[in-house]
């Protein structure tokens, strides 16, 4: 087992954002997090990445409570790509990706061969090698997202969490990015909005509504007309095709 969560509850003030969520994920698979806006997807990812402490419940990594793992050790294993991560500082793409080496370096340590290799590989994986000297500020939204993923990959994680990574991307880049995530072979948890994309690229799905888990399983098990009506209030048909099925929304 890779990462596992038991009965997580997280509140802001009196509002319960994540309500008794449990999950587990098989190593090397992609778990898609679905749910309407404000259903607690981002908060759940933050809890899983150890950025917030749950009010109750616990998260374990290989059976060890992540509350007992130092931030640095955790960051060598688990990486998070946030939804909005911007900066006003003017820096080169390469420098952004280099930040990902932070958990592997000790203070004042020089730059090693290993660090360079990790950065080069990460840039290559997201296809941004040619952009390495380009200024961050001049990148498009899709390029920035890929650089953030490269930054996360430079951490050399075994678990990768992504919060709506395809937001604001055109369809070509959306598919490219999801293919990339599926190809990486990491244990990934991805918050997504597009249900068809979730069905295409995720091995398993977990649907949240008002902070509660309403369904888990394979895409074919989870994505049913009844569930979509209940959670998203939409009517739809399912059209079978070669890779499985496609959801057709009704007017």
């Amino acid at each position: 087992m890779s990462i596992q969560a038991e009965n997580l509850i997280w509140r802001v003030g009196r509002k319960t954002i994540v309500d008794n969520v449990s999950l587990s994920i098989k190593p090397g698979t992609v778990l898609g997090l679905l749910g309407p806006n404000g259903s607690g997807k981002s908060s759940l990812l933050r809890l899983l990445a150890g950025l917030r402490r749950p009010a109750t419940g616990r998260i374990t990594l290989e059976g060890r409570d992540i509350a007992s793992i130092s931030r640095r050790d955790l960051a060598q294993r688990v990486a998070l790509v946030q939804q909005h991560a911007a900066t006003e500082i003017n820096m080169a793409v390469e420098d952004v990706v280099r930040l990902g080496r932070t958990p592997h370096r000790s203070p004042l340590a020089g730059w090693t061969q290993l660090d360079s290799h990790a950065v080069d590989t990460a840039l290559q994986q997201v296809g941004m090698t040619d952009f390495r000297h380009v200024s961050w500020q001049s990148l498009s939204g899709g390029e920035r997202q890929r650089v953030h993923i490269a930054r996360a990959l430079a951490q050399q994680p075994r678990e990768l969490f992504l919060d709506e990574p395809t937001n604001h991307l055109d369809i070509q880049h959306q598919l490219g990015l999801l293919r990339l995530i599926a190809r990486l072979g990491l244990t990934s948890i991805v918050a997504l909005h597009d249900l068809n994309h979730a069905a295409m690229f995720c091995d398993y799905l977990l649907v949240l509504n008002h902070g509660k888990v309403v369904a888990t399983g394979t895409p074919a098990e989870v994505l049913t007309p009844e569930l979509l009506k209940q959670v998203f209030q939409v009517e739809c048909d399912f059209a079978p095709h070669e890779d499985g099925f496609h959801i057709l929304f009704k007017k």
Partner: peptide
């Protein structure tokens, strides 16, 4: 401050990004 220079670099994209890169 110089001892924390890597940590300061990691704040470029905000607190959560710094935390996810292992900064306390």
């Amino acid at each position: 401050c110089i001892w924390h220079s890597q940590a300061l670099d990691a704040f470029t994209f905000g607190d959560d990004a710094a935390a996810s890169m292992g900064i306390a």
